[in-house]
Amino acid sequence: MTAPLTPSDIEIATRAADHFTRIYYTAYDSDTRLADLPHFYRPNSSLTWNGKPFQGAEGLTQLVSKMPATKHEVQSFDCHPIPGAQPPSLLITVSGSVTHGRGPAGNPPDTHQRNPEGHPRVFSQTFILVPDPTAPPTKPGEVAKYYVGADALRFVG
């Protein structure tokens, strides 16, 4: 039998997801993303980007270093503590829109007005955040330090 979750588990998870989505996409869209984003990952993190697998913080760096500039807008997110481990891992799903490069303004002037290229895409990203058992608590009140154990992204619109 899996131990049921408590309201406190859910509140802590919800707030962590709120905080995580803010700092993650702020970092992704920043000019210092190459230095900032790998902090969230560990060598054993599994990532897929539109069906292509990458491994760990190193894989993330390889992926992001060649990525055009981004501007994410999170339109929806949800988070569950995953039952069965204490402290629980978190499953986070995000739905939003992402503009790449210069957006529609970067299209050639002769682009047909019904041509969708250059316009913001819809993205769907799933994260599993897991507690790092090797990282000692460094702050008062800290449950654990979490990192991205899994990250699956798709452009879906």
Binding site: S8, I12, A13, R15, A16, H19, F20, I23, A27, S30, D31, T32, R33, L34, A35, D36, L37, H39, F40, W49, N50, G51, K52, L63, K66, M67, P68, A69, P87, L90, H100, G101, G106, L129, P131, T138, K139, G141, E142, V143, A144, K145, Y146, Y147, F155
Partner: peptide
Amino acid sequence: TQISFDAPQPSTSHVPVEKPTATVFPFEM
């Protein structure tokens, strides 16, 4: 009581990196 992250430290002590301007993504769908 909270969960914490190895978040990027505030204030950008890192050097900003120019982002690629290619018109095609580095990886395919």
